[in-house]
Amino acid sequence: MKSSCIDTIMLARYIEGRITDEDRELTERHFSECDACRQDFLVASSLIADEDIPDPEPILQKESRTILQQLKHRLKEDVAALCEWIRVVPSELAVQPWFPYFESREAFSPVRSAADTAPDRELPMHYAYHKKTLNDLEAEIYIRKTADENASMKVRVTKGDDKAKNVRITLKQEGIRDVSRPLQHENVLFENLIFGNYHLVFIWYGKNQKQIYHFQFRLDETGISEKNDRF
């Protein structure tokens, strides 16, 4: 089975020789299997090495302003919501009403370790919070980074001011078994999420019919991005 294609960072590291031996082996193995990535590598490395590509004069400031406005306008039509990881100490969260729902009291206590010189020092955490409207329902998604490329996620769904009833939430990821849970308490917890692409499916069993809502997103080192075609 062919390994997954090389991402841009890995390609850059390979071309610049800033790659570990293990990654080099993986990358070269992939190049031997994937014509497209091998071709990308050959073209990119020859462009980077080519000193004949001119370093032209900059364009006028007025021109660049117009171009930038056009690009931003175009991106507004395509771009999806992005929530970046927010770095905060737990005591700062306590003033916001939402987070105590999701975290135990202990999470907001200062963390002490032998290495700490200041006893009251709190360790920062990284979280992302995203709200999504699903017709009559509203989903609030709270994701907390638990390790370098790992996170846990809690999802709450409300109708008006109350917890939505008869809702089932399924988390899908390619190659991994779906995890599906009914919204019985205030929220649904999904743990051990590795950075990658996910698909949340909300099924609401209304009085007369079933309604299904989808939210596709990507978790990575920058935060959470809603997926669209450009992904």
């Binding site: 020859s46 462009l47 590509i53 001119p54 660049s64």
Partner: peptide, 22 residues
């Protein structure tokens, strides 16, 4: 704006060269 100002033409040349090399 400075990014666009500085790299607009360079990207044009790079893209053209990339087409050739592909």
């Amino acid at each position: 704006e400075k990014l666009v100002e500085h790299y607009w033409r360079m990207v044009y040349h790079t893209v053209r060269e990339a087409f050739v090399r592909y």
